[in-house]
Design a protein around this nucleic acid. Sequence first.
DNA 1: ACATTATGTTATATAAACCGAACATACAAG
DNA 2: CTTGTATGTTCGGTTTATATAACATAATGT
Lengths: 71, 71
Amino acid sequence: MLKNRVKELRARYGFTQSDLGKQVDVTRQTIAFIEKGEFSPSITLSLKLAKALQTNVNDLFWLEEDEKHEK
Amino acid sequence: MLKNRVKELRARYGFTQSDLGKQVDVTRQTIAFIEKGEFSPSITLSLKLAKALQTNVNDLFWLEEDEKHEK
DNA sequence: ACATTATGTTATATAAACCGAACATACAAG
DNA sequence: CTTGTATGTTCGGTTTATATAACATAATGT
């Protein structure tokens, strides 16, 4: 499962979803969907987001195993 | 413009396109297209590729400016 | 000469990303 | 109470990622 820190970092820098969308050339709806984890953005968009949020892609996105059926 | 080192690293580890495709759950054609730079894979696939090639996404993919209309 | 394997490439199809517009809610400011 | 701004959400559309299948070529081994 894909996780990300977009919402957290966007808030830290005081950007609105629209602000961030403009910086990376997508709509605010696209930012909202990414924050909800509803889809897996392209690596191109991911790299732009990492740049806008002053971090790197590895720190912004990661894959997490389902914890449902173990332990 | 999106650049990547998939072909280089795949060769370094001696994987075929099919091998790598199986590891990350895509077909060999998808690997071929990525190596040719013909599209921008999802961040999910990019993370899997980085893991299979024992590197991180930042090292595997990057955006490069067009040098066409400056200098 | 034949079989196998890796790769390049193309065509068609489906799923997913992304857009634009709309409507709703909440909240702060006047 | 009204206006503006940020966010959530949905819907109908276009574009792009990815699959499957096919055909071609070059290299290797028998």
